[in-house]
């Protein structure tokens, strides 16, 4: 109870200080002091030595813990040897309930206001055209889903092997990890949004302002390249829940899907679920003509 009161009291002071502070802050990182100076001169993630990485992670943990009033863990788990992640989505099973969208938001500390969703569920009309994106509707509202005469295709980052987004980034702030996940160093991104122009799947999202995540809804178990709270003015995207999957767990969207339409696994393991479905089912990938080689496979099991 005390905590709660403390939070609201602090919230009030914060509100009062916010005006003055935001006026004073020239830009972006919000706040001043030594921490932000350190952040300003911070190296690119791949260039950090062990010592700097540890220092940075500690600094971020401190920052987030102070900001949200609870203990944050910022890890930088390395890829597991011999893994290349792949995702499978059964569009014959997806019912378009959007559980995945919101599970993702909660797991990955996405901004509630302004709203950012890493997963977009598209609704298509059955029988007319196949995946004609221009006919797709992502704002469908229904009393109950699935609706008769429609099918649903959730789209998020396709984790392309030949990713157009990493190719265009002028500062190498986004790259493909050895386990196939496309990640972003939020402390390196300059916010030019070229990657958003380059992404054929609308998977990248821009923090239009300081992300608004209620402190009590934050997920404190984070990864540097994944779900840690983002600053404003940077691009973010799905990382296959890097903080979970690098520890062997399923991504949040796969765990929440009530229809069991979402499948995840190691493409290099011949006994994995993902390999089974690629070999046994009819599989397709979005916009294959663009030769981006997504590791996100849509399939039909009916």
């Amino acid at each position: 109870m005390d905590d709660k009161e403390d939070i609201t009291r602090r919230g009030f002071i914060k509100g009062a200080v916010a005006g003055a502070a935001s006026l004073a802050a020239t830009n972006c990182s919000g706040g001043g002091g030594l921490g932000s100076l350190e952040a300003f001169f911070q190296s690119h993630f791949k260039e950090m030595d062990k010592e700097e990485l540890q220092r940075t992670l500690k600094r971020l943990e401190r920052e987030y813990s102070e900001k949200y009033g609870k203990d944050f863990v910022v890890k930088a788990d390395k890829p597991i040897e011999g893994t290349l992640f792949g995702y499978g989505l059964d569009i014959s099973r997806c019912i378009g309930c959007r559980r995945c969208v919101y599970a993702c938001v909660e797991e990955n500390n996405q901004s509630r206001d302004p709203q950012i969703h890493w997963i977009t569920v598209l609704r298509f009309k059955k029988g007319e055209k196949w995946l004609e994106l221009e006919e797709a509707d992502k704002y469908y509202e229904a009393e109950k889903v699935p609706e008769d005469g429609y099918f649903y295709v959730p789209v998020s980052c396709q984790q392309c092997e030949k990713a157009p987004c990493t190719k265009v980034c002028p500062v190498q702030a986004t790259w493909k990890e050895p386990d196939g996940i496309i990640v972003i160093d939020y402390n390196w991104c300059i916010g030019c949004r070229y990657c958003m122009a380059a992404c054929p799947y609308g998977a990248r999202h821009f923090n239009l302002t300081d992300p608004g995540v209620p402190a009590e809804e934050t997920n404190p178990n984070t990864h540097y390249l994944g779900n840690r709270p983002r600053p404003r003015g940077v691009v973010e995207k799905c990382t296959f829940c890097i903080q979970r999957t690098r520890n062997g767990r399923y991504p949040a969207c796969a765990e929440v899907c009530p229809a069991g339409a979402r499948k995840f696994g190691n493409l290099l393991d011949p006994n994995s679920e993902i390999r089974y479905l690629i070999e046994k089912k009819r599989v397709f990938r979005l916009k294959e003509d663009l030769n981006t080689l997504p590791k996100f496979f849509y399939f039909i099991s009916l």
Partner: peptide, 29 residues
């Protein structure tokens, strides 16, 4: 498989609007 109530639709881009900062959390108060 049972039908179920979908979660709310995402906001349209013109519904994502600028609000005067009120919940802005300033660190290190």
């Amino acid at each position: 498989f049972k039908k179920r109530v979908p979660k709310p639709r995402p906001l349209k881009p013109d519904e994502i609007v600028f609000k005067k900062p009120q919940n802005v959390v300033v660190k290190n108060i």
